[in-house]
Design a binder for these strands. Structure first.
Lengths: 349, 349
DNA sequence: CTTGCATTTGAGAGCGCTCTCACGATAGCC
DNA sequence: GGCTATCGTGAGAGCGCTCTCAAATGCAAG
């Protein structure tokens, strides 16, 4: 309405609405700063009657603790960094990642921690590292699809760090991570295929240099070996629909019977669909299909794809939970695997 | 490797790796604290030779300014909040939103500002408001699909706030927002249909209580009226594929000639596709289709959908840019519209 | 009624930084 | 050469909070 000054209250112009301080609350409540501090931090040793008086003053002044001052004095920042390597950020539109981030944010909104999201490009990784090490955060969460981004793994030695997704090489024993139980999910999906009567079950596996690709293949093998079935029907893809189609083509070209396929993700399964139809085969009549991820690709195929749902939201929440526990000095498991659940749809009858 | 203590350096146990302070840098460089501060903040009035000495000391100690102390002393937090109403967060997997967030983060990574992401549920909106007003952030960005979430609009009076997406009622003159130029994008897509020879152009509009729905319809009208074409071929949808299919069905049931359709988003366009094929019509032979959003739905149809691409990444960056300008006391436009660009694909020849 | 102990409260010293102000040094001027 | 500007630098006072430590209070026991 007026000029452009009111839009910048930081300047402290106009009414000079001073933000209330601990001091002011103390004065109003007729106690000392220390006591107010105790109430604010819910220390047990304060007389109930005093607590009320202080809370009343806080309410009246609409007091909010100043984070900076608190953190300076307590040497705790109450800030958690969410580090997103830029390579992953490119895939930010990836629903999986976005949902993980959401889970993290939601979990933290119930705590006193604040989420600091930072995208670290290759070029500025040194800046990021410095920021993290400079005592500006209490801990860090690193979410990444690429295990190569574990250049941040060394961070774990001087700052609590929790990774989303397990590193390819688990030798970095000092680090903490939360991941989806890929192997169990894949084993479950494969078991479901077996239960529906399939006996010649192939898999379109993911890249074997990615934990998700590796573990899902392992899960498939686990179920097959449990039943003594043939484990030779493996073709690799790179998680794209095209690679799924190619892999399916190679599988069918083998000329051996195939009545079920477990694809390591929904994209590849969707790719496989087109090839199956090309060959005049039906789903699930001739071949039952199961995928992994539970995303748009699987839900829009005809018939809808049976798939392994990942608890991405819960994964994020768990990451945050583990980190907070770590920061607060509790002992926690280095590895946490989140259970998946099978979403049975028409592609497996 | 050892116990679980080393994983929590915050405790300050073990080697007690003290974080270097300004004081230490000053001592090492043989100058006063004030001078180091000047160098760190690149004040112009420091002798070059001294600057070097200080930078040298900073390098040697691996010094990083303590954010809390700095913010306490300067009364600036260098923190920008990204407020995501929970209703929007539910749609976090929405690529549009995720990309906007990414644009914001990326822009800020080049500044001295830090991004604080917070999801505010209805229940905790008071907590969020307090946090924002409590001097913990220098400004806030509010991203939301629902104009109803502008309960945060009042924030603008005491804190610099920039909204992503324009509010439905623009009377809140004091607020700043950045939006995609929906009307221009829609007008452009429609103009493209005209250019390819279409004369009977319908539209599947979005909800008229959402700015995006409203403005895209306006854009369609603008182009048609410019050419003196019939503007009666309007059916409303709610941005879902199903609603698009229904709207298309209603349009075709009118029994009047239609040779082009502008759908207010790709999802509805995809829904319309199925109905068009059901009726034995071809795309673009009988009917040319254009959408809006440029997402997965449009790119996977057959033929691929001509659509309006939104600069979501740039939108986020612009929001951050406007907010930073605002914080720094500069005068900026209240309204910023980001240009869209038309992605011509096979659905319009 | 005094002594001792537990428990609540207050005083005060920082946390690491910014920023005002005053100082000494250099430069420019008549 | 003495005078006033100009400039770079340092001293020191906080910013709002936490936390230690001591004082004050209350209460049970002697």
């Amino acid at each position: 309405m007026t000029a452009e000054t009111p839009s910048n209250p930081a300047t402290g112009d106009s009414g000079a609405r001073t933000v209330p301080t601990l001091e002011m609350v103390a004065a109003l409540a007729g106690v000392s700063r220390a006591t107010v501090s105790r109430v604010v931090n819910s220390s047990p040793k304060v007389t109930p009657h005093v607590v009320d008086a202080v809370n009343d003053a806080i309410e009246r002044l609409n007091y909010v603790p100043n984070r900076a001052a608190r953190s300076l004095a307590s040497r705790r920042t109450q800030v958690i960094a969410l580090v997103v390597p830029e390579t992953t950020a490119k895939l930010f539109s990836d629903p999986f990642f976005a949902t993980v981030a959401q889970g993290i944010a939601l979990y933290l909104s119930d705590t006193d921690y604040t989420l600091n999201m930072l995208i670290s490009s290759e070029a500025k990784s040194e800046k990021t590292r410095r920021y993290l090490m400079g005592g500006n955060v209490d801990g860090a969460l690193v979410v990444s699809h690429h295990s190569g981004d574990h250049s941040y793994s060394e961070l774990g030695q001087s700052l609590p760090v929790v990774f989303g997704g397990r590193p390819l090489i688990a030798t970095e024993s000092a680090s903490y991570f939360v991941d989806v139980d890929n192997a169990a999910g894949a084993a479950g999906a494969t078991a479901h295929l077996v239960e529906t009567g399939r006996r010649h079950i192939a898999t379109i596996a993911g890249p074997q240099d990615m934990p998700a690709g590796l573990d899902r293949l392992t899960g498939w093998r686990r179920t097959l070996s449990m039943h003594g079935f043939d484990q030779s029907l493996v073709e690799l893809g790179d998680f794209t629909p095209e690679s799924g189609a190619d892999a399916m083509r190679r599988l069918l070209d083998r000329g051996v019977p195939i009545d079920g396929v477990f694809a390591a993700n929904d994209q590849m399964a969707a790719g496989a669909y087109s090839v199956i139809y090309e060959r005049g085969l039906s789903i699930p009549g001739d071949i039952a299909m199961a995928g992994f991820d539970d995303n748009y690709y699987g839900s829009t195929t005809t018939p809808p794809l049976t798939t392994v749902h990942q608890p991405s939201h819960e994964l994020g929440a768990k990451m945050a939970e583990v980190l907070v526990a770590l920061i607060e000095g509790k002992t926690v498991e280095h590895v946490t695997l989140m259970p998946t659940n099978l979403l049975v749809r028409a592609s497996t009858l």
